[in-house]
Nucleic acid binder design. Structure first.
Lengths: 733, 733
DNA sequence: TTGTCTCCCGCTGGGAGACAA
DNA sequence: TTGTCTCCCAGCGGGAGACAA
């Protein structure tokens, strides 16, 4: 039943797929198929998964547990809107949630609606924190289980199949191949088939081979099935057969079931609140949240694999660009529709500034049935046409860049289909490594990235962001940012709490080092945040926001639409958004655990300057965010609590020069008479940082501490040791 | 339809109700009954409303637009839980939402589920601000429209009625009275009936009078109806006939439809988030929010008319108290179940401290089917039994108090049924006035309220709140607060934002003037908060919380479960919770638009002063509330409690220039004679901030302090040090 | 090979009065 | 007065081969 399928265009035909994508159904044990009707509890085995995907339709991708994905709350909202009660629309608050949230997929359950059989996936996501990063890489890169021996066929039901007179005509080749063989000695040959659906319900069919000429028919039991499932001509029936002959049956509807099937429980507005608040809560507390995912519901693929996103981000998307899109129903036929990008703009610049979600306005070719197709698409849901792909960089083609880009982008875009099949993941991984090698040669040895080699390409509008904004809107070619920039810039731009910011940023840093080393001063500003971690100077405490020098101009970033952002790229900070090599490095890095060593000494100082910029931005932001919702913390006034004392104090960290200064003051404040300062009394100062970890004061750099500290505690050493470790991940509030 | 009905016990019988409660269906125009199937759009006329209520069942009360109600988010959550997807339960955040929110009903739409016909009400609520107060009173008190000529009957379907053989047997008296008359000249007499359901669908029935002996039957069309509505024996069918002969048909199910009918759209946790965030958003921004209300769903009457709540609050609820409850299905039979209160405790002391929602643990009498009855109830959903009602005051019966209490409480409790029928409202109004008169005589002339006459009754445990807490938990008689106290006291106890607080408070003060003028000093201690307006001293900064005497014992109030609260009464602050006269005054004031003239000259000025004060409060609030979204709003009226003094004060921080200014004022307020200002006496001012931490005053910036402070304490340094440290680790963010 | 049609006929269930509670 | 039962029989629809695309 696959709600609205694909992009609205449904051309389901009789199909057969012996090989299917492999996705963990959520870790349910392989239980017996008892005839229970308990809404998807239990019995989720391989066959179940097979059937689920068969019902979901081709090209449906559901992320696997352990996978790293981007969650787009905006898309989630759009999907839910279709189901939500259209009660009086009121203004939604702005939740200060980023338009995309990097998450780890914790749990996936493939389910089906009890009353409509519509399949959906219950996905539990955990917003990513830095700690999870490493382990996550492993999980993502793990080999996918191979699945063999599963067979399925689906047939689009004819009017005769669904009429009250007679049964279901089984195409001969499917009967021969996928149904248990009949005893042909019988006259006529017949048998009873028992097939189990997604709810575990058993359906009995009489399978008979009769008529003149002979044909395979399902007779008794079939009409019951049709009636119960409310099947109409045009719907598809799916049979899956396991190794042991076990049979499963499912359906896939031609038309979406009317969605107002759902009981009216909470208002549409409350649903929207619920989605945003859930995500917000999860992000700020580092806890999991659950979504119900129907990726085939028109343009609602709001959970995008990290890799797929990154690959899509390697392409430039510009007005006038030609693209193709694959539709539901294409299997071998490979039907495609093509169109042109006619605009690039925020769908909701108030709530989701710079969101890439359906940012591309498109015009479909005359041949396509434009009425059924969405008018706007997300970058990752289209495939740039080959013809434009080699030429999609900037106005002036640059041979060297073009070459590099071909390596990094073109090849990958071919892989970035809707279904991220295991094979393609493997292939991608391999390709990434290859390309990475090439890049290292091409760039590291040149000691200069592409942007630096072509200073003329740097948009001179960088200096005035207001101006930039205006100019960019009128430009013909709007380059898509590459992942190298996009992630950190976006992170900075988010007026969200620090945890999110840092976690988002952290995903990008490991490999930036290599390339930032080549940046000159002009570039160092552009790459401000991305280059954060290129401070490889040996000071290892350095983290995302760590500043080291103070001579860089801080950039105040206005909030909302006024920001000079494009595709998540801060146009102010980023000079030249296309830089071929780091793109590859970035995505490959996330697929492979190997890290790239820094190459040049000179780059260090530049990087540091940039870090300072980003730090100041983040500080400004954190000041602002405390006035807003959901995670209010005021940084300039930091609380200090003393063990055994109910009364807390507050300090303004900006007034202190460093740790010593602070501790002296605390000593005074809490009447330690110098014993805290000297450490003679066994008391120590610890603090909770923005990731909820309790840390000992004094380890990392002062500035970093200032930006991360949430509150401080003065406590005897032994008391701290006694207490339970401050919950690793996730600290459930 | 009518999900779980009543308290789970369903004894629907053949009933007839010619007079029905009158409720505005939401202002829909009376349109024609075109046969449209558009989910409750249009055609909501009187007949529709009539039918809706008939389907909802007896005793279902849905508030009217303009009405003042308390919304209990906790109850809303419980109701939704029944519908929510039971996906992985995770910790819900604490939203800092009060357990009850005073709202104005803006809009009511009576609807029915498309697929199940379950009726529900879509109610749009507007959290109340002070400005709305006055106009609201008028709306509430407006006369309800009389409705005549509407007729309905319902019949519980027999197995024969729902069997495939034969039709529906119409009881003779109903056929004679409610169906169009048959032409008896025909052989047999028959006609076609057309009845429209809540969705606007037409149902055709052949009405025939035949058989031996003759009877009225619905034949053709009936089985279609039964099949379509999935009716079972035991369900009820409802027919409503309008003046013009127009016929409506509806159903009311015996058993609740399985609730998992609803499509899986968002997770249960997101729903909970949605509810809380919606309410929170509405409260903080002063905007409306919408709920779907099913008051018959077991104990989910989470929208309680203000008057009903207030009446219920007039009763004392104590362990051991006997009560009755009315059930769904009782009409003339007046079946009741009785039980005993066996405990009084918070259902969720973390999230909803001091919430009255289902606070009463009950034990049902042996005769009742306890398995179907809830184990805990809200105070307003029970009726104290008469026998205990006259004796429900305190441990030691006091003749005079008892008499007064009978006047104020007993009579009203009789009126506080589940359905707040117009008639009873009128009656209540009248009674209020009568009682009020009596009270004025009884108290004003005595110049001493009951409490003053029995100083021994003042709990001596006031002095130590820790001790108090312990004592109260073990007390047999736990008096329920009366509305006179309840409102402001509750407000004090809530760690909620001020808007709610002030709106709650404001309901109480207008008439207090009259009586507070008569209080002597002893009483002013007991009535500290209630007596706000009796501050005749002339110092006009006084607000709602203005104290009068300063010789009282202190109270430090810890937050959360540890607070010394009972039924929303701060047991520390309120000494003696029963005071007959003001109760009456309070509720009567809210029922009648006429105000009670002040009895003394001094009270007039007091009243004026107060309203000015409250005006300024609300103005400040509306300015500030936009700064935050989810929770805490700056306090413009911040409480100050002094150790050793039961009587709190309040200050408007916006009037002060800074810490010095504030401390000077506090010094004055609490008669420190400069010693607080100078710090010479070892007392210091601390405060609870919006993170529930107790902090020393003066550390952080004044503005920051103003925006974070929840309440202040003046306390000797050593006392503070003695107390338990506040939040340990991990800190709740 | 398979979609549709028509024919056959069993059984469901609508509709009637009988009968009894 | 009305709930249940049984009887009657119309017609729905399951199941078959015929026929044609």
């Amino acid at each position: 039943m696959a709600g609205k399928q694909g992009m609205g265009l449904t051309t389901m035909t009789t199909t057969c797929s012996s090989e299917r994508r492999c996705t963990d159904g959520g870790g349910f044990p392989d239980t017996n198929n008892n005839n229970n009707n308990n809404n998807n509890q239990g019995e989720k085995d391989d066959l179940y998964t097979e059937l689920w995907y068969a019902c979901a339709g081709p090209h449906v991708y559901v992320p696997r547990p352990g996978e790293k994905v981007f969650y787009f709350p905006q898309g989630h909202m759009e999907q839910v809107e279709a189901y939500a009660n259209q009660d009086g629309r009121t203004e939604m608050p702005i939740y200060n949630l980023p338009s995309k949230i990097l998450c780890k997929v914790v749990y996936v359950q493939l389910k089906a609606e009890v009353h409509s059989d519509e399949v959906f996936a219950q996905i539990t996501l955990l917003p990513l924190t830095e700690q999870d990063e490493q382990s996550l890489e492993d999980e993502t890169a793990r080999q996918l289980p191979q699945r063999t021996g599963l067979r399925s066929f689906s047939k689009k039901l004819t009017p005769s199949d669904t009429s009250t007179h007679g049964g279901f005509s089984v195409p001969k080749r499917y009967a021969d191949e996928y149904l248990p063989p009949l005893d042909m000695s019988q006259q006529p040959p017949l048998q009873e088939l028992v097939a189990v659906d997604l709810h575990g319900l058993e359906w009995h069919f009489r399978h008979i081979f009769r008529g003149q000429p002979k044909r395979h028919l399902l007779t008794s039991g079939w009409s019951t099935f049709v009636t119960s499932k409310k099947l109409l001509a045009g719907d598809a029936c799916v049979f899956v057969r396991g190794e042991n002959g076990e049979l499963r049956v499912g359906i896939r509807r031609c038309m979406a079931t009317q969605n107002n099937t759902s009981a009216t429980v909470i208002s549409g507005q409350s649903m929207q609140h619920g989605i945003l608040a859930s995500a917000c809560h999860a992000v700020t507390t580092g806890t999991m949240f659950t979504v119900y995912y129907r990726p085939w519901t028109s343009p609602a693929e709001y959970i995008i694999p990290f890799d797929k996103y990154m690959k899509s981000a390697q392409n430039d998307y510009f007005v006038g660009m030609r693209f193709r899109i694959r539709f539901e129903g294409e299997e071998s036929a490979e039907k495609r529709s093509a169109g042109t990008i006619v605009g690039i703009e925020d769908r909701d610049c108030m709530r989701w500034p710079n969101s890439e979600w359906r940012r591309l306005k498109v015009q479909w070719d005359a041949a396509t049935d434009a009425a059924l197709l969405p008018e706007s698409l997300s970058p990752w849901s289209i495939k740039p046409m080959e013809s434009t792909n080699t030429n999609n960089n900037f106005v002036i083609p640059q041979p060297k860049r073009a070459r590099a880009h071909d390596l990094s982008s073109t090849d990958f875009s071919n892989l970035a289909g809707r279904g991220l099949l295991p094979n393609s993941v493997e292939y991608t991984l391999q390709r990434c490594k290859e390309v990475l090698q090439g890049q290292e040669i091409g760039n590291v040895h040149a000691h200069e990235p592409a942007g630096a080699q072509n200073p003329s390409l740097l948009p001179n509008l960088i200096k005035d962001w207001n101006h930039t904004q205006f100019r960019m809107k009128n430009q013909l070619y709007l380059p898509m940012q590459n992942p190298f920039y996009q992630c950190p810039h976006r992170a900075i731009a988010f007026p969200v709490d620090n945890m999110v910011t840092s976690s988002l940023i952290n995903h990008c840093h490991p490999t930036f080092t290599t390339y930032s080393a080549c940046d000159n001063v002009t570039n160092s500003r552009s790459f401000s945040v991305s280059n954060v971690n290129s401070s490889n100077s040996g000071s290892q405490e350095c983290t995302v926001f760590e500043p080291k020098s103070k001579d860089e101009t801080p950039i105040a970033q206005p909030n909302g639409c006024g920001r000079c952002m494009l595709f998540g790229v801060n146009l102010v900070n980023s000079s030249h958004p296309e830089l071929p090599s780091p793109q590859v490095a970035t995505s490959s890095e996330h697929l492979s655990p190997c890290s790239i060593p820094p190459t040049s000494q000179s780059s260090v100082s530049e990087t540091i300057q940039v870090s300072e910029t980003s730090k100041s931005i983040s500080r400004v932001l954190s000041n602002k965010q405390c006035k807003k919702c959901c995670s209010v913390i005021n940084r300039s006034c930091t609380k200090v609590l003393k063990y055994g004392t109910v009364l807390g104090r507050s300090v303004d960290l900006s007034r202190f020069d460093g740790y010593d200064d602070l501790i002296s003051e605390l000593d005074l404040m809490f009447d330690f008479n110098g014993s805290l300062k000297s450490g003679s009394n066994g008391w120590q100062v610890s603090y909770i940082d923005n990731e909820r970890d309790m840390m000992l004061l004094g380890d990392c750099q002062w500035e970093k501490f200032c930006s991360a500290v949430q509150r401080m505690f003065i406590c005897p050493k032994e008391e701290i040791d006694k207490s339970k470790p401050s919950s690793s991940l996730p600290p459930s509030l």
